[in-house]
């Protein structure tokens, strides 16, 4: 400590910053991890280097970042495979280091070098990094950090497209139902971005994977988890109504089984013996429309629709009761 007093501190060049980040991350090898003291020290080193990177990328509050340096830093990070290293070491990093990393990540991805998104291109060439980030939802210690990083990635259509079509995508149907609300709702927010941010990419994906996708989506709509049901129905109407999805929507609304899902959902609201006042008001206000719609519904085929008819009658009865009892 006391020696630094005599040194004239010369600010590090971007190349030097990247070099020390790389070295400090590599120092987190298996040997270090076993030894508590050594690990602590190595983690501190990473943390310190991330702060330096952060300052170089976004300034220190007093001075603005030097754009030339930023550019060099980004280039060097890609050249030295630091992104891969960062993502793989992420699960052992401390909270502060992860926080600085998330902050830098946003800037790194947006940064252009010679009019190219250098880091995005790097990720495209090392696309398994995205799969790695997705499965981090299984680790609730880091899930909120990796979730943020993932959402930054899928702002770029190519990266979103990759996830939609990868084997990892199906994992989201599991993650959005994780018991921990903060993680599950973060996963849902990423899931929502995937299905809404890039209309054409989504339309293409839904057309190609129509049956698998909607089969799985049905599990969300009928989930025992109230938040999942409410969020998934909202999201469904959001993306079905996007103009690039017009064909998908037309196909979806032709199918009786999906209508049944919707009816079940309506039943859940209508049959609730303790309907909150707001729900009653909305049902009451739309009573005429709802009843008309329900009376005109006829699936008109097959005996398996008996249950459908029964449910329909039940809902009609319940909705009629609402206004009769005048309970609000």
């Amino acid at each position: 400590m006391s020696f630094s007093f005599f040194k004239v501190s010369r600010p590090k060049t971007p190349q030097e910053v990247v070099k020390s980040i790389k070295e400090s991350l590599m120092a987190l090898d298996t040997k270090t991890v076993v030894e508590v003291k050594a690990l602590e020290k190595a983690l501190e080193e990473v943390e310190k280097n991330f702060v330096t990177m952060r300052t170089m990328l976004s300034g220190d509050g007093e001075s603005e970042p030097n754009l030339d340096q930023v550019s060099q830093l980004v280039e060097e990070i890609c050249k030295e495979d630091v992104l891969t290293l960062i993502i793989h070491q992420l699960p052992i990093l401390g909270w502060e280091a992860r926080k600085d990393l998330v902050h830098c990540w946003t800037i790194l991805l947006k940064q252009k070098v010679d009019s190219n998104h250098c880091c995005v291109e790097y990720i495209e060439q090392h696309i398994e990094l995205l799969d790695f980030l997705v499965v981090c939802y299984d680790n609730k210690e880091i899930a909120l950090s990796t979730g943020l990083m993932l959402r930054e990635c899928i702002k770029f259509p190519n990266l979103a497209k990759y996830i939609l079509e990868s084997a990892s995508f199906v994992l989201f149907f599991k993650y959005v139902e994780l018991p921990n609300f903060d993680v599950a709702s973060d996963a849902f927010s990423t899931f929502k971005d995937l299905l809404t941010k890039h209309g054409n990419v989504v339309a293409e994906f839904l057309t190609a994977h129509y049956d698998e996708f909607f089969d799985q989506y049905e599990t969300l709509l009928t989930s025992p988890n109230y938040v999942t049901r409410r969020q998934s129905i909202k999201l469904l109407s959001d993306f079905l109504l996007e103009s690039p999805n017009a064909q998908i929507m037309k196909r979806y609304i032709l199918e009786v089984r999906y209508l049944k899902v919707m009816m079940t959902l309506l039943t859940i609201f209508v049959a609730n013996p303790n309907k909150p006042r707001e729900v009653k008001i909305i049902l009451g206000k739309n009573k005429g429309k709802l009843l008309e719609l329900l009376h005109n519904l006829s699936p008109g085929k097959g005996s398996e629709d008996e249950q459908f008819e029964e449910e329909k009658e039940f809902i009609i009865g319940e909705i009629e009761k609402i206004s009769l009892s005048g309970s609000f």
Partner: peptide, 23 residues
Amino acid sequence: DLDRCNSNFDDIRKEAQIMSLID
């Protein structure tokens, strides 16, 4: 009570995340 809660789930999510990240 999620039925009585006016805020949308995004707000609730952000609140939950802030609270779980605080130390």
